[in-house]
Amino acid sequence: MKTFEYASPNSLKDALGLLSDTWGETEILAGGTDLLTSIKQDVTAPRLVVSLKEVKGLSGIDSKGGNLSIGATTKLKDLIANEDVQKHFPGLVTAAKNIGSAQIINAGTVAGDLLQRPRCWYFRNGFGLFGMAGGKELVPDGDNRYHAIFGNGGKAKFVNPSSLAPLLIALGAGIDVQGPKKERSVKAADFFSTPKTESEREYALQANEIVTGISIPLSGKKNGIYEVRHRLGLDWPMVAAAVAFDESGGRIRNASVVLGHVAPTPWVAERATAVLNGQSRKAGAQAAGNAAAQGATPLSKNAYKVSQVKVAVRRAIEAV
């Protein structure tokens, strides 16, 4: 691993003061499960790593003002064990449990799941976010079996790796961000972006800003997720679906369907949402799955993921 300077500031203000406004010069360390691997893989080579472990007030789960607030550095194991999360957001518990082994759950953090870099093997092996070599894009004719089937018309063909983001978007969550001068809240739906250059990242965050927490409205919506994987054991999903909706008189209302691992950002399946509203769960599940898969633009080796979208959405709705 390349060497770097290291600081463990005692306050958010001090942490912000250490961050560069250029991506990659400094990196924030929380659980370390993705950052340290990324540095070993030369995906990033920071001059300075800023640890958040001594910064107070960044972890913990509180319900206040009709929201459940989850601190950025809350460990995934604490998210899973929290009674309020279990009661209101069972889908989030399932999503967090699915992230990895006990070792990952014990170390990894909530914001770390949102901010981890893509798993694309071209990216992880030195060909950059767009998988380029000699001015040529490698993904379209290469091994793209795990790549995007939506939103892949540009150079970015990787998939967003977050397990929590799809359901957070479906639940209308907000991401709290602290910058050097001001604090802001970004809708989870607006937080992820598709980079157009190698120097950008995959989210609407400046390099010198810190995600401090997540607020999820306590709306009472039913929610759930389903991941399609190669095997039952720990693995990255090929497709994930998150759903949230109200249900009264046997009819679904205010539905939201968001897909994971299918596009460079979490992918809001608007057609599925439209189909689902007003339907019974039984009648709506299959139709919503089919609608969610419409408009997919699979690459040469990943058309199978289009079928998986149908299954994931149906099973997510049935599992709620």
């Binding site: 360390l29 340290l36 070993k40 640890s51 082994s101 006990a102 170390a107």
Partner: peptide, 26 residues
Amino acid sequence: DRGTCGACTVMLDGDVVYSCSVLAIE
């Protein structure tokens, strides 16, 4: 050395973690 195989597993304050994915200084 990338947080997958578990051969480096240790306990930190009782919790199992991959020691390849923790800095000694932390």
